[in-house]
């Protein structure tokens, strides 16, 4: 249990997707103009990360890793398919996003109305593929750990985009030098927020 809490907190604050690894920067910069849309985008990211990371974990454990195919028979024991992981992960992500979009549209039109437009954007969000690749690199022990990591990273991303959107809404009333307006000041504010987030570094739970 303690291990799970540790992974959760670590993936939200210390290994924050945006401030420590710059993953998902493109949509982070493009969608963060108002708080309302960024909340929608943030929820969509949490949702998709929480679904794709466990699936990719199973794929990694039972298909891709060296010796993962032993369940098919002993002759498969030293097959190593890990070079295929990029293409498998991205295929899972693209198809899951499509599937989730269809299911959400069918079951809850209200949720679709608020999340719908963001879902196609997410297939090419580096945070999603990055999450799966980090999961592979860090080799979590169980599917529960991988899921907790996925949800935590999603929540970290959500916090970051909502915070920057709130700042960008307010900064419209300030006098920013012309050439810095828009993109430039957003970069610099994100950098400053990153410095603030670095104070979480070194916390051991």
């Amino acid at each position: 249990m303690q291990e799970l809490v540790n992974i959760f907190i670590k993936s939200i604050f210390i290994d924050n997707m945006i401030f420590a690894y710059f993953l998902g920067m493109c949509s982070y910069l493009a969608v963060s103009k108002t708080v309302k849309t960024s909340v929608g985008m943030g929820f969509a990211v949490i949702f998709v990360l929480g679904i794709t990371i466990p699936i990719n974990y199973l794929l990694e454990k039972y298909v891709l890793k060296q010796g993962a195919l032993t369940w098919l028979g002993d002759s498969f024991a030293d097959v190593d398919l890990s070079f295929l992981s990029f293409i498998m992960f991205i295929a899972v992500i693209a198809s899951m996003v499509q599937l989730v979009e269809m299911i959400v549209e069918k079951i809850s039109p209200a949720l679709y109305g608020s999340l719908g437009i963001f879902l196609p954007l997410i297939a090419v969000n580096c945070a999603i593929l990055g999450g799966s690749l980090f999961m592979q690199e860090r080799a979590y022990n169980s599917i529960v750990e991988a899921t907790v990591f996925g949800l935590g990273s999603g929540i970290g991303w959500f916090l970051a985009i909502v915070a920057i959107a709130a700042i960008r809404e307010k900064i419209r009333y300030s006098h920013v030098p012309g050439p810095l307006r828009g993109l430039g000041i957003t970069f610099i504010i994100t950098g400053l927020m990153g410095i603030a987030f670095m104070s979480f570094m070194g916390i051991k739970l």
Binding site: T190, G191, G194
Partner: peptide, 9 residues
């Protein structure tokens, strides 16, 4: 990491 953002800015 944060200084990369500021440098690009």
């Amino acid at each position: 990491p944060p200084m990369a953002l500021i440098t690009v800015g």
